[in-house]
Amino acid sequence: MSEHPHGTLRPDVGEGDHRAGPSHAPVTLVEYGDYQCPHCARAHPIVTEIRKQLGASLQFVFRNFPLTEIHPDAGHAAEATESVAQSSGNDAYWAMHDAIYEHQMDSLDALDDEHLVQYAADIGADAARVQADLDGGTFEERVRADFVSGVRSGVNGTPTFFINGVRFDGNWSNRREFAAALQSPSA
């Protein structure tokens, strides 16, 4: 039983996921990320650039993996994106996702509730709804479900990427290596 197949995405990408790009794209990249993780913030422009580069041949999916003991604002940041997705739709979700990563380094309190609500307002989403959802913990369970799916998939830190369901153990910060893995996925 020690022969354990590590690093297989489960569950597969589906209706409940936040997806960008065509669902029938030959390559699907799934990121498990934490909005307060500096490595994830560093990965964000790299992923954005690669998504542009690969265009319609890539579907991108983001799942929440907040490490809330070391990143106390990561849970609410994830819940805020879920609130925006539900109240204002998929495009607003991605705008909120981008806004949080772009602002992460602004200050030590860049991801407190007040700022999260402000980012929602800035992108034209329902900011009052975000505040209410954070106060009520509306999306706590959804975020935890993402986290548990990540654990079951073999996520071992943030960010962790899966290319067509297989964990990418290479170096994502090397754009050429990352892009090459996406252009010729092993699965």
Binding site: C37, P38, L67, E69, I70, H71, G157
Partner: peptide, 10 residues
């Protein structure tokens, strides 16, 4: 970030 013990803690 998110080393093994921090991950298990979560």
């Amino acid at each position: 970030c998110g080393d093994q013990m921090a991950l298990y803690n979560e």
